[in-house]
């Protein structure tokens, strides 16, 4: 019994197909373009192919992420908060707190003993504390985004970055560079600034063990270490942090299916066009 989840984030579109044992059969990631619908279908097709299935065989499809309303072939839309929680519950039964650092927002989610959402906070109107912030600053520093975390970890010190607004922080970084500050130390300072902001936001919910970091931010070692320094203990990261939301969407679909909720229309691949 295969279930699909599709997570259209601001930067990346992720599709996961999972079975009823909560195992991932296939997962694909593509960049979110201007045309959500077209891309959603393309990534879905690729994932279905990798899983060796047909589109028609999918028992339930849940769409999540900020582009979730642009998935005409989904049976249900759920928010990324609910789906992240479901995905993390499948990966780490002991998780009580999620810190998700996405491309254009970051969020803190508190889970109860059953792994259900009991409270959440969200920063969704400002690039501070998001992947976009790191992207902008990596460009200013002239380094590769993927290498940024390691560069920060290799630094022998830290340059304090006091501005957390992306635009002002960029100015600040430019000034520090002009003063001859070390790129690695600046990168370390930036990670600390983001971690402080995101963790303080999450603290309002009351931080409990275990803490799981998800989203693109979890792929950045420097940022994960900076978050650990803020919370005061080691955090967990999924093997593939990008797809937590899509996995959760697939499993949330499975939960609905098991409660007797069925797709409203018969699923036919040829009926799906991105203009529907």
């Amino acid at each position: 019994m295969p279930f699909a989840g599709i997570d259209i984030g601001s930067t990346m579109t992720k599709v996961v197909i999972a079975d009823d044992q909560e195992a991932v059969l296939a997962a694909h990631i593509g960049p979110t373009g201007v045309e959500h619908r077209h891309l959603a279908l393309k990534v879905m097709d690729e994932t279905v192919l990798s899983a060796g299935l047909s589109f028609e065989a999918l028992d339930f499809i849940v769409a999540t992420g900020y582009g979730r309303i642009n998935v005409p072939f989904a049976d249900k839309q759920l928010t990324e908060i609910t789906c992240h929680a479901r995905g993390v519950r499948a990966l780490f039964a002991s998780a009580r707190m999620i810190i998700d650092i996405g491309g254009q927002d970051s969020k803190g989610i508190k889970l109860d003993g059953d792994g259900k959402v009991s409270d959440f906070v969200m920063n969704d109107k400002c690039a501070a504390g998001t992947g976009r912030f790191l992207e902008v600053i990596a460009e200013t520093l002239g380094i590769d985004l993927a290498a940024m975390g390691d560069i920060a970890l290799a630094a022998d010190g830290i340059v304090q970055i006091s501005n957390i607004c992306t635009v002002f922080a960029e100015h600040e970084v430019t000034s520090r560079l002009a003063e001859g500050a070390d790129v690695g130390r600046i990168a370390a300072g930036l990670h600390q600034a983001i971690a402080t902001r995101v963790v303080n936001m999450t603290r309002r919910l009351g931080i409990e063990k275990e803490v799981v970091v998800t989203g693109g931010g979890a792929k950045n070692n420097g940022l994960v270490k900076a978050i650990e320094a803020q919370v005061g203990f080691a955090v967990l990261t999924p093997p593939e942090p990008f797809i937590t939301g899509a996995l959760g969407a697939a499993l949330a679909g499975m939960d609905l299916f098991r409660r007797g909720i069925k797709p409203q229309r018969p699923r036919k691949r040829e009926d799906v066009t991105f203009y529907s």
Binding site: T79, E80, I81, T82, V117, F120, M122, K125
Partner: peptide, 16 residues
């Protein structure tokens, strides 16, 4: 004009 961005938070709360 900025209200649409709140939709996700409201929906997540209702799901919760």
């Amino acid at each position: 004009t900025t209200m649409g961005q709140l939709r996700t938070r409201i929906q997540a709360f209702l799901e919760m």
